[in-house]
Design a protein around this nucleic acid. Structure first.
Length: 622
RNA sequence: GCGCCCGUAGCUCAGUUGGAUAGAGCGUUUGGCUACGAACCAAAAGGUCGCACGUUCGAGUCGUGCCGGGCGCACCA
């Protein structure tokens, strides 16, 4: 067989993505082995047999036996004219759940990474035509809320009214940040403080008395603070499922029955877990090494652990629990719904019931995420288990240099480390709002130095957009499994590989288009394209811009928002070169000028589309 | 002890699933503003891809073993 021609299917016969452009394929080497022929012979056969792809490409042999696909530039450019990035909406619903609001303190840089990564991925999913619902889990009954409440009540002797007064302050979360750190530092050597916490926790669990009421007050006030902080970055959520409702509506009871019935968990009679309901270790981990630590799901006192609640919640996300929350609109946040324990008058949309779920939680939680998925599998919800994705990312730590700048004292040991972990308990970290304020202030100085004449409010608006772009890009430029050693100077930079660099390209392109005065994309005949695009620089620029859709979808497939961000940067770089090398307005040749305007407009629309997916705004000027 | 992640230029990071001469940004040195705004561009210097075997036409990428660093492994969430 295969005595003449090639009968092995190869991808270049029908390229899925001609926009991938002029690329080299090592097919000759791959096929040479299968067909037991020299690579150069294979290459020649390919070129002879397959040349001419979809009428706009041709194959040619490179010097080393590789095969290049060459696009016909004029046809390719003409084919881009009517292109749009509209995609048919896919019927299946995707839920993206963040777990980043611990309603006990201000949001910090760790929360920012969670929110920006998750929000960008949501935008990518939507660009891909998926119907997406965004949730944020509110852990409003745990010890962390209890810590803050105990701090107000026992340590500061505040009454409910006094705390309510404080909660009306815009930066109430800052106050709790300090209080939380203060009371946490007391626990190691103050038994009384521990007793305060225990008492508060009981009160919150029983949902009774002043302490419980203070718990509601504190957690909802801090949730509002978080939502305001994230809104500054263009991030919002559709629904906030609260742990309190998971408890009160007895979500766990339903899950518990199913788990028992399917024998996914069992009652332990002996050993250290005696009296608990546990999930056997082999369900969620490889136990061949002899390590068989089972996971406690229900404690010996009859209460359910976090993982148990999370299994019930995960079932609900897939519509497999047989129960639902009640919902009400959240005051002050249009479009945001929150769960409640009682039926409401308002007609709420239907939440949950997804076919796929992404849980955006940092990689330290991977063990627990595995247990949750194992729970689904043990219940024979194999589809749901397969479609439960832990969208994990590494933590944000602080660079030692930044700790010094912030006046944080480091132990001799910490100074040796490459980075220092953020710790809410120690009050060690950079608050999200502080960072944003600092970015805005820096951006405003830059804007003012360039546009003194502009009104202050307008300059401020531009500065906010620049700050948003800088922060979002900074959090996205790292791949998910890279630990970010947060460096303040680096984050505050507006030069080089940064959000503002990309925004600047968009702004300059707009400026050219504004000055040329043309509002529509000029029609260019193929012969003109062929002539002008013979210029290698212009051709490469066009090719780069035409890859926007492909690059974003590729990033979506890889689950890496950083790839999309990096593409935007590379495209901006290509424009900077174009901008420098090809003066558009001053171009004397009218025909060539038309093509340059066409290119600028095409670039502008592709970059702005990409920036929109990344949640990075384009300022009026910079 | 077990599991997961990381080790690439002085620093911070990419590397499109095994392909051509390993790339960006920052920093350093040098050159470019009468503006489509220099938040930019051009050029130079800078690499034993932690180490060693292995797999194959081909390894930064896959396998095994070491070395170094980080994070998990609760009746906390």
């Amino acid at each position: 067989m295969a005595s003449q021609g090639i009968d092995v299917p190869i991808q270049i016969e029908q390229p899925k993505e001609p926009a991938f452009g002029e690329l080299a394929l090592p097919v000759a080497f791959q096929l040479a082995r299968q067909l037991k022929k020299p690579p150069r012979t294979i290459a020649q056969e390919l070129v002879d047999g397959v040349g001419g792809i979809a009428g706009i490409a041709a194959l040619e042999i490179a010097g080393n036996g590789y095969i290049n696909v060459r696009l016909d530039r004029a046809s390719y450019a003409s084919s881009l004219a009517g292109e749009s990035s509209q995609r048919a909406e896919l019927p299946a619903k995707v839920v993206v759940e963040h777990t980043n609001i611990n309603p006990n303190k201000a949001a910090h840089i760790g929360h920012l990474r969670n929110a920006i990564l998750g929000d960008t991925f949501v935008r990518m999913l939507r660009a891909g035509g998926h119907s997406v619902e965004v949730q944020n889990y509110i852990d409003n009954t745990g010890v962390q809320v209890a810590d803050v409440v105990a701090g107000f009540h026992f340590l500061e002797k505040k009454t409910l009214d006094e705390v309510a007064g404080l909660a009306r302050q815009p930066r109430f979360d800052y106050l709790c940040w300090d209080l939380y750190a203060r009371i946490s530092s007391m626990y190691p050597d103050d038994p009384q403080a521990k007793a305060w916490r225990t008492e508060t926790l009981h009160a919150i669990e029983g949902d009774d008395g002043v302490l419980a009421e203070m718990g509601h007050l504190v957690s909802s006030a801090i949730v509002a603070c978080h939502l305001r902080t994230m809104a500054r970055l263009g991030i919002s959520y559709d629904v906030l499922p609260r742990e309190s409702e998971i408890l009160h509506l007895k979500f766990w009871a339903s899950a518990f029955e199913q788990l028992k019935e399917r024998k996914a968990i069992y009652f332990e009679n002996e050993g250290k877990n005696a009296g608990c309901w546990v999930m056997p270790a082999e369900a969620f981990r490889d136990t061949s090494s002899g390590d068989d630590d089972s996971k406690v799901i229900v404690r010996s006192n009859g209460t359910v652990t976090y993982v148990g609640k999370d299994i019930a919640y995960q079932m609900w996300k897939f519509g497999l629990l047989g129960k639902d929350f009640f919902y009400r609109k959240l005051d002050g946040f249009p479009g945001v719904w929150v769960t409640t324990g009682k039926p409401q008058d308002e007609a709420a949309p239907s939440f949950g019931g997804a076919s796929r779920v992404y849980n955006v939680i940092d990689s330290r939680q991977s063990y627990l995420q595995d247990v949750v998925v194992a729970g689904l599998r043990a219940l024979h919800f194999d589809e749901a288990a397969k479609n439960s994705v832990h969208f994990s990312y590494e933590m944000v730590a602080l660079s030692p240099r930044t700790c010094v700048e912030l006046g944080i004292e480091l132990s001799a040991e910490d100074k040796q480390r490459p980075y220092v972990e953020v710790s809410g308990r120690k009050g060690l970290g950079v608050k999200a709002d502080d960072l944003l304020d600092k970015l805005i202030e820096t951006a405003l100085r830059e804007v003012t130095s360039r546009h003194e004449e502009a009104p202050e409010a307008e300059r401020r608006g531009v500065a906010i957009q620049i700050a948003t772009g800088a922060l979002r890009y900074f959090m996205l430029k790292f791949t998910r499994n890279t630990v970010i050693a947060f460096d303040l100077q680096e984050a505050l930079s507006f030069e080089g590989e940064t959000g503002p660099y990309v925004q600047y390209a968009a702004v300059r392109a707009r400026s050219i288009l504004r000055k040329t005065g043309e509002t529509r994309q000029p029609a260019i005949p193929p012969e003109t394209f062929a002539k002008v695009l013979a210029d290698e620089g212009l051709w490469q620029f066009l090719l780069a811009a035409s890859r926007a859709d492909f690059a974003v979808m590729k990033a979506l497939e890889a689950g890496e928002p950083s790839h999309a961000a990096r593409y935007a940067f590379q495209l901006a770089q290509a424009f900077s070169v174009f901008y420098h090398d090809y003066p558009v307005i001053a171009e004397p040749d009218a025909v060539r000028k038309h093509v340059l305007i066409w290119l600028t407009r095409y670039f502008s629309s592709r970059l702005e589309w990409t920036l929109n997916v990344l949640g990075i705004p384009v300022p009026l000027y910079m």
